[in-house]
Amino acid sequence: MTPADLSRTVLHAVRRAVDENALRAPVPARVRVERTRPGGSGDYACAVALQLAGPAGLPALEVARILRELLAAQPGVRRVEITGPGFLSFTLDAPAAGDRAVLDAVREQGIAYGHGDVLRDEEIRLPYAPEVRAAVTADAVRRLLAAQGARVRISCEGAGDPEWGRLGVTATADAHGTPPAPHTPLAPPAPLTPLRPVPAGATAAELLERLGSDAARWGLLRPASHDRAPLGDDLLVQGEANPFFRVRYAHARARALTRNAAALGFTSTTGAVPYGSPARPLLDLLADHPGVLLAAARHRAPDRVARQLEAVAHAFFDFHDSCPPLPSGDEKPSAAHRSRLALAEAAGTVLAGGLSLLGIRAPAHL
């Protein structure tokens, strides 16, 4: 990781903290990092916490702690320490080590990559309005919270629609998440905040007849809950202008790469060669994925997952076109092809896992 890479990583963490309401401060245009002076700690130091403390209305040490949580697991960063009045000091990994760790984690955890137990001591009740968009949103939020270890119960505030079942929803459902640690008392149930997104303006039967379950769920979940859900026939268009198609096509293309590589007699290998700049946006998105899932669960915002999947699909196609994972013509498979295939497969796995949390299928063929 170069100083420029580290500066971008810190700036990205600041943006995430602001987006997640952990910090209330303007995001600076750039963040400066410097080589640690003799006698200092780590490889680089950054004073951004001191810069943000005043606008955020928080002590610099508290700002530094918020940012350290977001930065500690970033690829290429071995350790983050807080020194002095609030400086962040970074010790970096060898350049390829962080990337390899991300890809190994995706390969090991599969579609559960990004799941965790941060919310394991929480018991959450989610009432929702008797309307199809609220029902689908509650189901997706239940899945997201359970994936972070919470115990969740959703319940409709009125009479449910039997057609919701064809959208993967039941009027009342439980998700148990991760059992709490022994002798750890559960947190009191959070105050009830009913889910009432802007209504869909259509019934489940109407949406199912016109769009089918998968496209209907995407159309209902992709916009933020306070925005109207566009539910036109463009959700069914098989073209680049349709984000829903693009996400599922990226997954299907990643699966096809694995099949085609097997036919050529080779498989993927993580970290065989450095990935280089064309892969950086995709690697960064895969590294950010666990944080996106946790934020989506905490904020009851499945739209964040949908936007993340769109970004992964876009970065996947950019990488695929710049660095083809398969050899062409008489070219023999090389270490670079094996590494590129590993990255493409990881992208496909993340897309499949994210779609699953939204209750949407990820076909291997489109």
Results as ranks from 00 to 15, higher is better:
residue 108 E to I: 03
residue 79 R to Q: 14
residue 28 P to N: 10
residue 60 A to H: 01
residue 35 R to Y: 08
residue 347 A to M: 05
residue 187 A to N: 12
residue 18 V to H: 10
residue 14 V to I: 01
residue 345 E to V: 10
residue 128 Y to F: 02
residue 26 P to A: 05
residue 29 A to W: 02
residue 362 A to Q: 10
residue 346 A to E: 01
residue 126 L to I: 10
residue 39 G to E: 00
residue 143 R to E: 03
residue 164 W to Y: 07
residue 146 A to R: 13
residue 314 H to I: 12
residue 115 H to A: 15
residue 36 T to S: 04
residue 24 R to I: 11
residue 122 E to M: 13
residue 106 V to P: 07
residue 265 G to M: 03
residue 204 A to D: 03
residue 73 A to L: 09
residue 42 G to H: 01
residue 240 E to G: 14
residue 317 F to K: 13
residue 146 A to N: 05
residue 143 R to G: 11
residue 207 L to N: 05
residue 14 V to C: 02
residue 264 L to R: 15
residue 218 W to P: 10
residue 314 H to N: 14
residue 344 A to E: 04
residue 2 T to I: 05
residue 98 G to H: 06
residue 333 P to D: 06
residue 248 R to V: 12
residue 319 F to M: 12
residue 128 Y to A: 01
residue 47 A to I: 12
residue 216 A to S: 09
residue 319 F to A: 15
residue 303 D to E: 10
residue 345 E to S: 12
residue 100 R to P: 02
residue 254 A to F: 00
residue 168 G to K: 05
residue 50 L to V: 10
residue 254 A to V: 05
residue 167 L to E: 02
residue 33 V to L: 00
residue 234 D to Y: 08
residue 43 D to A: 09
residue 91 T to S: 09
residue 148 Q to W: 00
residue 140 A to C: 09
residue 113 Y to D: 07
residue 274 P to V: 03
residue 313 A to S: 07
residue 247 V to W: 01
residue 305 V to H: 04
residue 8 R to M: 09
residue 234 D to E: 05
residue 233 D to F: 09
residue 100 R to D: 08
residue 76 G to S: 06
residue 351 L to I: 14
residue 99 D to H: 12
residue 143 R to H: 12
residue 330 D to M: 11
residue 284 D to Y: 03
residue 51 Q to N: 14
residue 99 D to A: 10
residue 121 D to N: 13
residue 248 R to N: 09
residue 171 A to P: 05
residue 117 D to Q: 10
residue 116 G to P: 15
residue 101 A to W: 03
residue 264 L to Q: 14
residue 210 R to L: 01
residue 363 P to Q: 07
residue 278 P to S: 07
residue 53 A to N: 02
residue 254 A to Y: 08
residue 338 R to K: 15
residue 218 W to V: 07
residue 283 L to S: 11
residue 126 L to G: 06
residue 57 G to R: 12
residue 114 G to C: 06
residue 128 Y to R: 06
residue 331 E to C: 04
residue 232 G to P: 11
residue 96 A to V: 08
residue 240 E to L: 12
residue 238 Q to F: 09
residue 312 V to G: 00
